[in-house]
Nucleic acid binder design. Structure first.
Lengths: 115, 115
DNA sequence: CCACAATACCTAAACACGCTATGCATAAAG
DNA sequence: CTTTATGCATAGCGTGTTTAGGTATTGTGG
């Protein structure tokens, strides 16, 4: 897929996944992959920097934990993160509507007069 | 709006507008603006370079014309452009579905056990 | 008549962010 | 014991948007 499309939606997707319960980077990428039927695959080079951005923006908070013999950095949403996710979802809806507005409504191809 | 979202859909939108009939840069931006109810605004700094990219990729062809006392660079789709628009639309659908797949289906918030 | 807005095109520099590639470390599988 | 999967991280690259600026013509209000 065209990665430029994904640009801008990555953070929303990640926040969404995290909103379902405390999770960590590797699992987030797996979840996004699975739930999009393999259409998206967050690469590590975008995944981890994005998590760091979100944390810097105080939308998520992290904590290291040893689980199943694995050292993982778990993330969960802050209250600001919950609001941000909601805002991003609304923005996504508006964006998708905007696209439909341009693509959608009829406008049968015009007969083009020559100059 | 988040310009990152738009990035990646810009070329599709422009091809779409051009597909309705020969047009030029300034008008394209107005059309996109109008038909998205003012939601999108293609900045000149992205509009013109995008047109040049499309032309370089042979998806559109241009010609200068003097109309209404205005010197304008008119664009129209090539046959490759028509195909590309179709492909981009399909990709958009797949992308939007992917997003819905991640956002959509229930997944009631889990009760998070403490560590 | 003149300043200003609108129309119309263009580009350079700064910035953002996804990707590739790489590195490190541990656990499970063969 | 070597390979694969898990798990985190970052540097450099590529691409495209924004900001900001430049040029030129036409219409408009004072």
């Amino acid at each position: 897929m065209d990665s430029r499309l994904l640009s801008g939606a990555v953070e929303m997707l990640m926040l969404e996944v995290i909103s379902h319960g405390r999770t960590y980077g590797y699992e987030i990428s797996q979840t996004v992959d699975t739930r999009s039927n393999g259409y998206f695959s967050l690469k590590e080079g975008s995944l981890y920097p994005a998590l760091h951005r979100l944390e810097q923006q105080k939308l998520v908070k992290s904590s290291w934990h040893e689980v199943e013999g694995r050292r993982r950095k778990y993330y969960e949403l802050t209250s600001a993160g919950i609001k941000a996710l909601d805002a991003k979802k609304q923005e996504w809806q508006a964006f998708a509507s905007g696209i439909q507005g341009v693509l959608g409504d009829g406008h049968s191809a015009t007969v083009i007069p020559a100059f």
